[in-house]
């Protein structure tokens, strides 16, 4: 194996800063899961086609499996662990519970963060806009019906 330089990196995740040292060939997903033990972010395909590894970078949904960790210095990262505050579910999480938008749960962290970003950018999305926004997050259990309903339940609400 080629000898790689290691990088000192400061990552801001869920408003906490973490100092770590890593070679450059590691994805944000690997660092979150393996170094920071934030295993709520899932790997489903490793090639960006499923959306389970979605995290927010400066508020925008990003595939952490396609993102180099070394490129994340200075960015603000939010993972699923960062949504609930003080032991209370974020309204989007509560809506997913309330409307049964969860079955096996593996797509849920990415789906929730993608929906969260949608509602931040567009507080009153139509059903078509919701479907389009989550169309890169694949679910096998729910048929999406109740996921769409959960997001719709928040459309227009104050959050």
């Amino acid at each position: 194996m080629k000898e790689m330089k290691r990088y000192s990196l400061t990552l801001t995740v869920n408003n906490e800063t973490h100092a770590l040292v890593t070679p450059p060939n590691r994805t944000l997903l690997e660092v979150l899961r393996d170094d920071l033990q934030l295993t709520g972010t899932k790997e489903g395909c490793g090639e960006g086609a499923c959306g389970y590894c979605t995290v927010l970078v400066d508020g925008q949904p990003v595939r952490s499996c396609l993102t180099l960790a070394v490129a994340m210095e200075g960015r603000k990262i939010t993972t699923i662990e960062g949504l609930a505050q003080g032991g209370k579910l974020h309204p989007i999480q509560a809506a997913f519970v309330e409307h049964h938008a969860i079955q096996c749960g593996f797509c849920s962290p990415g789906m929730i963060l993608t929906s969260y970003a949608l509602l931040n950018n567009n507080p009153t999305p139509t059903e078509a806009e919701i479907r389009r926004a989550i169309a890169g997050n694949v679910c096998r259990c729910t048929g999406y019906a109740k996921i769409v309903k959960a997001v719709q339940s928040l459309a227009g609400e104050e959050r």
Binding site: K5, N25, G46, L68
Partner: peptide, 11 residues
């Protein structure tokens, strides 16, 4: 899937 080794350049 892991990334292969490389050196990182950030101009």
């Amino acid at each position: 899937m892991k990334l292969p080794p490389f050196q990182y350049l950030e101009p």
